[in-house]
Amino acid sequence: MSFTMIGFGLIFIKNPPKEINSTLGYRTKMSSKNKDTWSFAHKYAGKVWLLSGGVNAILFIIVLNIFKDSGVFESIVNTITSIQIAILLLVIPFTEIALKKTFNKDGKRKIQGFPVKNLIM
């Protein structure tokens, strides 16, 4: 599971689907508004998956080595796998929050920094 997250993270960061489509990629109403939201969503989701997949892989290897000879090994693996699936799905709310912070409801980037009216004296 961790290596799947890392793999898709790298793909989404380096080579996301170029065109908005209904079959491949991170497809939500907000990410499909335009090419800017599409690209942003894939890069953001890719970073989340890459980071969480890397952390998961390290923790999974450590925990497996600690419990490899114990009677609870199978339960530990099942629990970790369930946690990894939950983390895999958390990319959706994280990415949607980032999209809403970066873009307005029409898919146009929000102005970052000081509002223009504060610059006028």
Rank of each mutant, 00 (worst) to 15 (best):
L10Q: 01
F12R: 08
I13K: 06
K14Y: 06
P17A: 02
K18Q: 11
K18N: 08
K18T: 07
E19N: 08
N21A: 00
N21W: 01
S22C: 04
S22Q: 11
Y26F: 13
T28V: 11
T28S: 13
M30T: 02
M30L: 01
S31T: 03
S31Q: 04
S32R: 04
K33D: 05
K33G: 00
K35D: 15
W38F: 07
S39L: 06
S39V: 00
A41I: 08
H42I: 03
K43Y: 00
G46W: 00
K47Q: 12
V48W: 02
S52M: 11
V55P: 10
V55N: 12
A57F: 12
I61G: 04
I62R: 15
L64H: 08
L64Y: 09
F67I: 08
F67T: 15
K68G: 00
K68Q: 07
K68S: 02
S70K: 11
G71D: 13
G71C: 05
G71T: 05
F73M: 09
F73Y: 11
S75C: 05
I76R: 01
V77E: 11
Q84K: 03
A86D: 01
F94C: 03
F94E: 04
T95M: 07
A98R: 12
L99S: 09
L99Q: 12
N104F: 02
R109W: 00
Q112V: 08
G113H: 00
G113C: 03
F114Q: 13
P115F: 02
N118D: 13
